[in-house]
Design a protein around this nucleic acid. Structure first.
Lengths: 232, 232, 232, 232
DNA sequence: CATGAATGAGCATTCATTCAT
DNA sequence: AATGAATGAATGCTCATTCAT
């Protein structure tokens, strides 16, 4: 991999420069779209933020609409990958110790919540929400597999927890869905749709409340007895 | 004064005509804003939909931004009033019969969900979410007291259920918050941010799941025993 | 007409009210036109300043253009009357004493200059100048006889001074014209077209310079000899 | 500078094209502003007259107000340069022959008057007068140094004439000011603020009268004696 | 490929004017 | 006669997009 000639290096550098420029445009585009909205965002400002000429944006991505789609898809993938990665932390390598379950859930809940409260995450959801009426295909291409992947990943872990006897028998998809709802639902109001940062403490409160409620509802009965005994 | 019916009628008709026209503008404005977004919406189209001249809109509301604020505030109040009314159906006039509790919760959950899935409700949330970055005061003036009123109303009922021994001792605000989260959280994904209608059956499923989980987590222990026994 | 005293009184009062209102509109119109220009001035603002409803302006004067013409004519007449009155102060009741001539000229020059530097005068000239291209008839109807009347009045006095042997034989109209030119010409630059007030001292300087030059050019030779002897 | 390569030529052509377009816009702008006034003038018409698209005007000059300022400044400079050039013709290369002085003054007076009666000159003054209330900085930036430069140039020549014994000892600035006043003052009324052309003959009459009066007032005494003797 | 100049369409807003009361 | 509401036309300005270099 090191024996490239000069010309190859130059080519790679150029191509890398092209890729970098494209990425810079996409990043800039998402930034601008994020705090102006689709309609208010100007291609010129995107170009300025990206440090390229206006027309270069057109050369690379052809269209304002396409710039939008590409930028959304790109950051959508990035955000989703992080979310799924966070969800994958919910493993079952330990024993069925009730406290361990709780702390694991809290851990993954915390990770998920931090991801969800990331400004980029809020911006993504905001744009998705705002423009899904104007661009019906947007949801499918951006959120489409992503959201499902997160829910499915979480559902997988729930299923394994259920099989392991930690959680009671239940529909794992529903459990995952409600776990996420308990987690992210309260954030919308508290963070004012992401316009105001939520203090760390409040965030922890939400995590604890969500996990507590979730466990009360889904923990196996014999465990919940011990757990509630321990909690008291 | 009051002698002639005609003059009184005429006067009232005029004044009513003005009010009607203003209301027509606000309604039209919300409709147009709802499916175009703030920036894409044209004052001209609003006027057309309202059946008035473009300038009449300016005469009544002065400014596109102000039209937006007024329209949002108006439908925001309407939507919130309905939501609160739905929440107020959660009363405790019956005995502490577990089945009664469940069916009451399901009833109010259903009402709330129907409200939340109303296209106007989705549009309101979408616009609020989309434009709260551009108009920071919007949230306060539209959602501001409304959202709290819903949560507080629901919390009040939760507190009374708790006092009556139906629900276990808990923070009623948190309980209300999570009840709403379990209810509305899953809808966001299922209805694609409100762009696709959710079939009645699926809606009922969400209601049942939410109520079930909520009861499992918050019902008093001695009742939940009987309840689960009855459910099986 | 005049049958009942009451109705006549009422009528007269009403009619007076009408006249007052009309005058108020014209005054307000001139004020607004003066500091906004014709095109920028709004009928609404005129109505507000006059303290009447917008449509009342139309009732009284029919048209924005007509409002403008009427307002210009009215203040034009007023300004011109004052100017002519000032010019008429140049009388020859005294003897042909050189010093008396100078002081009389200075007196009338001062009066004329004060009139010309009146904000209303500047505004009138400014509007006349600005809009005479758009309304070709304006000059005729506003300045038309007025300007001539001033020049003729002044020329009359010059002629009498000439006949009295105080001024040398000359074309009195030309003398009047140049007298006015020497007087008002320097003011244009000094007062920045009337946008900045000219200090009293500078004003006197202009008067003195104008009168001196005028006398040097137009005083009878035998008098100018004595005058210059006296001045030295 | 003759051996330019093709690329240099192309570059120059392009850049010249840009400059030409900008100049075309400024010229068109002044024309339109001149016969419509600032407020009535439309950017669209300016663009049409200039033969460019409306937005090109904005690309080059950014703003209607800025278009106005730039156009005023440009023609202001041009007009003033011509005026100063005319004033500079008042030289003293000949002897102190009274007739020579008169003819020289008449020459320069004629040149100045021709400049002042140029439609562009009238338009410039009209706009300056009309809009100096709305744009207080306009006078400074357009007339500012220009008017002074003319007066100072003329004053310089007056001073040299005075030193040469042709004119009597006097304040040269005041002499210049009054010379201009005698020249341009009468034109305002006669040309109806520049709306009607003044016949050549009348123009000469004004020049002769102005020079005559000026000389009578400012020529050295011993010369004026000979001059008046010659004139009779 | 990257750029700067140019374009045409679209939009919020203002204003003189008319209608109904 | 006086008013307030309503209108249609006009205007400054922005923006996505294309052309020539």
């Amino acid at each position: 991999m090191g024996g490239t000639t000069t010309s190859a290096g130059a080519t790679r550098a150029t191509s890398r420069g092209r890729i970098d420029k494209r990425q810079a445009i996409l990043d800039a585009a998402f930034t601008v779209f994020a705090d102006r909205g689709y309609a208010r965002a100007g291609v010129e400002e995107i170009a300025e933020v990206a440090g390229v000429a206006k027309h270069t944006v057109y050369n690379h991505l052809g269209d304002k609409e396409n710039v939008f789609h590409a930028a959304m898809e790109a950051t959508g993938n990035a955000v989703m990958a992080e979310n799924v990665a966070a969800a994958e932390h919910l493993a079952m390598d330990g024993a069925a110790d009730p406290d361990a379950v709780r702390s694991r859930l809290e851990d993954v809940a915390n990770r998920l919540l931090v991801q969800c409260c990331d400004p980029r995450s809020w911006a993504l959801r905001r744009l998705l929400n705002a423009e899904s009426a104007s661009f019906p295909d947007l949801l499918e291409s951006v959120w489409g597999h992503g959201a499902d992947r997160l829910r499915q990943t979480l559902a997988d872990r729930m299923a394994r927890l259920s099989l392991a006897g930690v959680l009671r028998t239940c529909d794992p998809v529903e459990a995952a869905e409600q776990f996420l709802a308990l987690l992210t639902g309260p954030m919308e109001a508290r963070s004012q749709f992401g316009t105001r940062p939520v203090p760390e403490a409040e965030l922890r409160g939400v995590v604890n409340a969500a996990v507590s409620t979730f466990l009360r509802a889904f923990q196996s009965d014999h465990l919940s007895a011990t757990a509630s005994a321990a909690a008291s």
